[in-house]
């Protein structure tokens, strides 16, 4: 009798644990129970035309605000040396969050929250400010009139931007199909699947989730061949189609902050030393290979090179999505293709 009472008592924490575990796991389960959202049927061509008409060119977006999450798992070792801040290298691994407020083409705010810091790009009617709370600097950015808002970072890719790139690819040798409708950021979305036909491409397909109502790209996923999880994904975590409050687009440098004028400091300061010289692209579309001069000695201690495999004529680094070949004669060949293709391109 005593033991039974005990069992009953210990049932309470067990139940509490189950409830918490259930609450954590409920999201996917609820999504599974709800099943696919119901959207009017569209063929691949209709969807491509519909999306391409809006996003193939300089697209127009309805006023919205939301949170974008970008996740990369290219299969390269995690880089502890990489600062978790908004460095272009940070794009290569891990998950990053970005907040976006979009009023119109000339009213955009992007915020990159960090631990106890925040970076903001505020673009309002031809005037752009870059605010870095960690450095306590406000930079007024000179923009030639008539150009769209600049992207603050290579990492700050919005799903519509990524969709534009993917649609440009779709013009080459691509099988276009419609995937299952899905729910992204709580909205019913069509899925457009773009699969390269070339066998040497490492990309299995690129999946675009497009909002069923507004046709705004909500998520772009790149799947490598033979991988169940996307190698790269950028998508809205939450999105609201409503005009953001005007305060978001006004910026006055706070008292005490350093105010400068110039370019985006991040782009000039933190850009890795890009090799200067001729940059050649061979092939086209999915299988294009970029060739550039490269001095391997400069990167001797780089953890990326430590995992390189030696082949005839150079060293090969393979990730799930991208291969790179460093030739002994000082060239770097990069492409989303098999290493053999790179070797062939190197000649």
């Amino acid at each position: 009798m005593f033991t039974r009472a005990r069992v009953v008592r210990w049932g309470v924490p067990a139940a509490a644990l189950l409830v918490v575990a259930g609450a954590i796991g409920a999201g996917p389960v609820i999504a599974a129970v709800q099943g696919e959202p119901q959207l009017p049927e569209l063929t691949a061509d209709q969807l491509l035309t519909e999306v391409g008409a809006r996003w193939g060119g300089p697209g127009s977006m309805p006023p919205m605000s939301g949170t974008i999450v970008e996740t990369a798992s290219l299969g390269i070792p995690a880089l502890p040396a990489v600062p978790s801040g908004p460095s272009p290298l940070a794009l290569l691994s891990g998950s990053h969050e970005l907040k976006v407020w979009y009023g119109s083409a000339d009213q955009v705010r992007l915020a990159i929250p960090g631990p106890m810091s925040e970076q903001n790009l505020i673009y309002n009617k031809g005037q752009a400010w870059w605010w870095d709370s960690a450095a306590n600097t406000a930079t007024k950015i000179k923009i030639p009139s008539g150009t769209p808002a600049p992207a603050p970072l290579p990492t700050a890719v919005t799903p519509p931007d990524a969709a534009r790139l993917a649609l440009a690819m779709a013009e080459s040798d691509t099988a276009v199909s419609v995937g299952n409708d899905s729910t992204v950021a709580g909205r019913a979305a069509y899925e457009l699947v773009l699969a390269p036909k070339a066998p040497e491409s490492l990309v299995r397909d690129v999946r675009l989730a497009v909002d069923g109502e507004t046709m705004v790209p909500l998520r772009v996923q790149i799947f490598a061949k033979g991988a169940a999880e996307p190698a790269f994904e950028v998508g809205f975590d939450s999105i609201t189609f409503a005009r953001p409050a005007p305060e978001n687009f006004t910026f006055t440098p706070p008292p005490g902050a350093k105010v400068t004028e110039g370019d985006l400091p991040v782009l000039t300061q933190e850009r890795p030393q890009m090799p200067t010289g001729d940059l050649a692209v061979t092939g086209k579309g999915w299988t294009s290979v970029v060739t550039l001069p490269f001095d391997a000695t400069q990167f001797k201690d780089n953890p990326l090179l430590a995992g390189a495999k030696t082949v005839a004529g150079g060293k090969v680094i393979t990730t799930k999505l991208v291969s790179a070949l460093i030739t002994d004669d000082g060239r770097l060949l990069v492409g989303a293709v098999t290493p053999e293709t790179l070797e062939k391109a190197a000649g």
Binding site: R9, V12, P13, L17, A23
Partner: peptide, 21 residues
């Protein structure tokens, strides 16, 4: 806040089950 609440619920009930038995 949700994580804190979960911790309070789980460990509070563990403390209760242990202390009362």
């Amino acid at each position: 806040v949700l994580a804190f609440a979960a911790y309070i619920a789980i460990f509070g009930s563990i403390a209760w089950a242990r202390f009362t038995s």
